[in-house]
């Protein structure tokens, strides 16, 4: 009996379900999409340089049509990312690969569409579409830059807690503050009360992005309470802890909002672009 079984078989893991290589979205598959984008851009530039249309390059030449069609299809595909990101279907896709292709091909689109215009601009729907596209691309670039810089700070600031834990700690601290404030004089108690009632993070977008809260009641209470009064020792310590926690929460919200802020340009501009693109295409074909 006792048949030998091949070595290694015992622990052959299901590598197919694991991450084969660890790369960020920019370098996905050894910069595959960067190469594709570079080639596409180079081909477009080369064709444009070799092309000698009459009277001058514009969207209406054969090459112009080709570039325009490629550009429009690219825009449509780039816009589909919003759907892909939220349709969690089965299958061999990865959002990282999509974002990688999105970023690099989106940059290539900048060149392709610019060549498509033949550098003819004016105050019309065509240039509006082009301008909106540039806005989308530039905001996308901003996004990539933020995605590269902010995650480490987000991680470091969070320091192994979570949003939920921060909120729970704050609630706990506030309970203790209320408790301690019962023994204070009216003026001090009112200051503490105001500190607890004040907003934890900025209510407006501007305040969230700046990581500050205008007229922060906690800061005010700390400034106005007499730190040398021994009766206030506990309250002062609790307010100090509250201030430190608020600083962490505000920084957290600041970083998270910043990571999403650019999308508030990128996505509405995409919607505008799609509308302008439609107008551009319709007007070109029907009213030429």
């Amino acid at each position: 009996m006792n048949a030998p079984i091949p070595a290694g078989a015992m622990r052959a893991p299901a590598e197919g379900r694991r991450t084969a290589r660890h790369e960020g979205f920019l370098g996905h598959r050894r910069f595959f999409w960067a190469w594709v984008a570079l080639l596409a851009t180079a081909a477009a530039v080369l064709l444009y340089a070799l092309d000698d249309p009459w009277p001058r390059p514009n969207g209406g030449t054969a090459l112009g049509y080709a570039l325009g069609t490629a550009g429009a299809l690219l825009i449509l595909w780039l816009s589909l990312l919003g759907l892909r990101k939220r349709r969690y279907t089965d299958g061999q896709w990865s959002l990282k690969a999509w974002v990688s292709a999105h970023v690099w091909l989106g940059l290539a689109l900048g060149v392709i569409a610019t060549l498509h215009t033949g550098f003819q601009f004016g105050w019309n729907v065509h240039t509006l579409a082009y301008g909106l596209m540039l806005l989308v691309i530039l905001s996308g670039l901003l996004g990539v830059w933020l995605y590269a810089r902010l995650p480490r700070r987000l991680s470091a600031n969070r320091a192994e807690t979570s949003e939920r834990a921060m909120a729970a700690t704050l609630a706990e601290n506030d309970r203790a503050l209320k408790e301690a404030a019962r023994l204070l004089d009216d003026r001090s108690a009112a200051l503490v009360e105001a500190a607890i009632r004040g907003p934890a993070v900025g209510p407006t977008l501007e305040q969230r992005l700046s990581g500050r809260v205008r007229r922060c009641a906690t800061a005010a209470a700390r400034a106005r309470l007499d730190a040398t009064d021994p009766a206030l020792e506990t309250v002062a310590a609790l307010l100090g802890a509250r201030a430190a926690l608020l600083a962490q929460m505000r920084r957290h919200v600041q970083l998270k909002s910043t990571l999403q802020l650019w999308l508030l340009v990128h996505v509405p501009a995409t919607v505008g672009l799609l509308a302008a693109l439609l107008a551009h295409v319709v007007s070109v074909f029907f009213y030429w």
Partner: peptide, 11 residues
């Protein structure tokens, strides 16, 4: 892992 846009999540 498939839904992570940046490649941060790995198994």
């Amino acid at each position: 892992v498939r839904a992570c846009p940046t490649g941060a999540a790995l198994r």
